[in-house]
Design a protein around this nucleic acid. Structure first.
Lengths: 327, 327
DNA sequence: CTGAAAGCGCTAACAA
DNA sequence: TTGTTAGCGCTTTCAG
């Protein structure tokens, strides 16, 4: 059912029908209004947003690109982003790159082809190792967009993220303040954007307190439970009293291994973790964890984008501060 | 940059340009082809899919409606659905109802307004308590769609789900086959679609084996960790030897409480759970769990929808069998 | 091989 | 208060 068909049935012009169904200015006689509404209702009229967009140049659609939707961090982000825009009459097209940087370009183009009004991008780790290409891709984006969580330097655009360096620093500082010098660090692999930053902050806490980095044991994991289990197998915990784990999933695996292999050791260890996810509550031991409020991140990101959509030349960079929760 | 502008620059007609950029039949001279391609490239031409859709009546877009994107079950489903369609050149618009049945109708209409080619719906629990309204809403859907995971009776449409009744039955049977008669059941609240089915299956296993339902202790939870903890507080485990928990999150909370309050009891308990999520591996104890392969569910759902899109009158109902994994 | 023209469903001046 | 008209960017006959 189209406006044209309704107009035919009601014996009025298309523009009248258009005005009525969009209830524009009341410059329409009540009778016609009633008649047209009745016919529209009866025929279950649904407007064709596609056609409308073609003329209004607004699709009321936002694109969201994330590396992996089954990652709780990104699905939480997606949830908040979705809520924000839904409340404003927009809809969100969510696409995942599955951590393949190559997909980013084609996905961005596809979204732009769909005439989305704005774009939110969480880059994959991989895209940071292809600096020039990523830069080129981002520079070609001709609509308002914002980079979230992973900030790409060398390009002037909207950006928002949590200060991972600060988080790493806070974690290290807490260990040191509690008197720990023999520290094991369950870190990330070298490709991880957030991992690199957390490492920098952590090392800064060491130098500031005259602790020799040589005395620290490092394990490189992949932010998952299995890595935590593996970390236990690889690290020599004999003299270790403090542990900094780069995320909670690895912490969960690590603690599981300790409990199974050397339960008493758990008491002796002071563990600081990152992300502060709800699952951490599963552990009997209380583990402080650096918290990044995802809801707040999403909201701020969306607000910046919203402003950018209204004012195409508006640009903002925002760095948010994580908090180390002790519970 | 539009086809028209390119045509102007290249001094050819719009239709020629259209043919070239879509590389239609090679009935175009190589020189023009090269020229047009060059101009398109230089100006970074991106086709307007919206305009194309308006004439082709195909948007290459699929809608996906789920109750909650931060629920791992649905985000996994979304991931698989997204992958399926992306590989076929489609894109997915994902929207969440946040478990509010009211949102379903407006979201469905909004997606149809956007001329999506097909729709996948996981209904919220709430919509089952508003039978008539939900039925009306579904009957009004004029495009190919499929109901996943939660099946709504009394309407003839594509449907796919796992047999929750069978899952409940398998769990109960395993407990009984292992000699357990004093059973505690950590169930769901009465609104849960899957919970009701699991309960039916579980009770069937009891009657088939002459176990009096009166002897079973029930706790009603909300499928989360907190409910599992609460279950421990509410149930009297003194004589209980077998436990059926309706999902793994509750199991995790339940086991955590046991460990903290009465660790030895854990050894005496035979626990059967549901969902078989990876996190279950965090537990030291081996806990069998009913597994529903979400990837397979998503794939089957998408295939049925794909077929429906090709053949508008095709309708299929599919029930998939869960498997009780013992590890 | 090429182009003119019609039209997808809708909005938005501009007339009447 | 109403209707006419001209497009939005694209595809697709149908003539040349």
């Amino acid at each position: 059912m189209t406006l044209k068909e309704i107009a035919l049935l009601a014996n009025v012009s298309i523009s009248i029908v258009s005005r009525i169904v969009n209830d524009k200015e009341c410059r329409v006689s009540p009778e016609k209004r009633a008649l047209v509404m009745k016919i529209a209702k009866e025929n279950n009229y649904t407007p064709n947003i596609i056609a409308k967009s073609l003329v209004t140049k607004k699709t009321m659609t936002i694109g969201l690109i994330i590396p992996d939707i089954s990652n709780i961090f990104f699905s939480s982000l997606a949830k908040s982003v979705d809520e924000f825009w839904q409340s404003r009459g927009y809809n969100v097209i969510l696409v995942s790159t599955n951590n393949v940087a190559e997909n980013e370009e084609s996905l961005i183009n596809m979204l732009i082809s769909r005439q989305i009004d704005g774009l939110i991008i969480a880059l994959s780790d991989e895209s940071f190792s292809e600096y020039d290409n990523t830069k080129r891709v981002l520079e070609n984006i001709i609509i308002p967009y914002i980079l979230v969580d992973r900030i790409f330097d060398g390009i002037n655009c909207n950006k928002i993220c949590y200060d991972n360096e600060l988080g790493g620093y806070l974690a290290g500082k807490m260990l040191i303040d509690n008197g720990h010098k023999e520290i094991a660090c369950i870190a990330s692999n070298d490709n991880s954007y957030s991992g690199k930053k957390r490492m920098i902050g952590f090392k800064r806490s060491l130098t500031e307190n005259n602790i020799n980095d040589k005395d620290i044991q490092y394990y490189k994991g992949n932010y998952d439970i299995v890595s935590g289990i593996d970390a236990y197998d690889c690290l020599d915990l004999t003299n270790v009293t403090g542990v900094f784990s780069f995320n909670d999933m690895m912490t969960l695996g690590f603690v599981k291994s300790i409990i199974e292999n050397d339960a008493p050791k758990l008491e002796e260890l002071f563990i600081v973790s990152y992300d502060n996810i709800e699952l951490l509550g599963l552990l009997t031991k209380n583990i402080p964890s650096v918290d990044q409020n995802i809801v707040a991140l999403a909201e701020q990101a969306c607000k910046i984008l919203e402003r950018s959509i209204g004012d195409k030349k508006y640009i903002e960079e925002k760095i948010m501060k994580p908090v180390l929760y002790e519970k």
